[in-house]
Simulated scan of single mutants.
Amino acid sequence: MSTNDNNVALNNYLQNTGRLASLSWEDKSDGPRHGPVWTSYCKINDVVMGTGTGSQKNAARDAAAGQALLALKAQDAAEEAETAAE
């Protein structure tokens, strides 16, 4: 698994569901310049759906994207089940 797999999967999922424009990121670094720790927040419609940390920004974003993708799929499945029950 490469460092961007979750990010690519999230982008594909959002594109397929017509929500790619709702994606935004907030990135922060902490620590010394030679060894920062990045924290990335993956937001969908300005709601944090995933958080990730890493020694590189792309690794932090990928971790956050993985969390966000799981949360979105669970949310979409719950909405689908609710609609089917009506």
Rank of each mutant, 00 (worst) to 15 (best):
N45V: 07
D76L: 01
L23Y: 06
G35F: 04
A64P: 02
N11Y: 08
S22L: 06
G18S: 10
A68W: 00
W25H: 07
D46R: 09
G35P: 00
D46W: 07
S55L: 12
N4Y: 09
N7M: 14
S40F: 00
W25E: 04
G52F: 00
N4F: 11
A84Y: 04
M1T: 10
A74M: 12
W38H: 04
N16I: 02
E86L: 14
Y13L: 08
N12C: 05
V48Q: 06
V37D: 10
Q15L: 13
D62W: 06
G31D: 08
Q56H: 12
E79P: 03
K57V: 13
Y13M: 06
Q15S: 15
P36K: 11
N4S: 15
S55V: 13
L10I: 03
W38P: 04
R33N: 15
P36L: 09
S24Y: 01
N58P: 09
G50W: 08
A81Y: 00
A64F: 05
R61L: 12
I44Q: 04
M49P: 03
S55I: 13
D5E: 15
K43S: 08
A59D: 11
Q56V: 07
A59Y: 10
L69T: 04
E86V: 08
N11I: 14
E79C: 09
W38F: 07
K57A: 13
G31P: 07
R19S: 08
N16L: 12
M1Q: 12
E79R: 09
A77L: 01
C42N: 05
V37I: 14
Q15P: 00
N45T: 08
W38M: 01
A63V: 14
L69H: 02
G31K: 02
G52Y: 03
T3P: 11
D5K: 12
V48K: 05
A71T: 12
T39H: 12
K43E: 06
L10Q: 00
L72C: 07
D46M: 07
K73Y: 05
A77D: 00
N6I: 04
V47T: 11
S29K: 15
Q15K: 15
T17V: 12
S22Y: 05
A9C: 07
K43M: 09
D5R: 13
L10W: 02
R33L: 13
T53I: 09
A84E: 05
L20E: 11
N11K: 14
E86R: 15
K43L: 14
W25A: 04
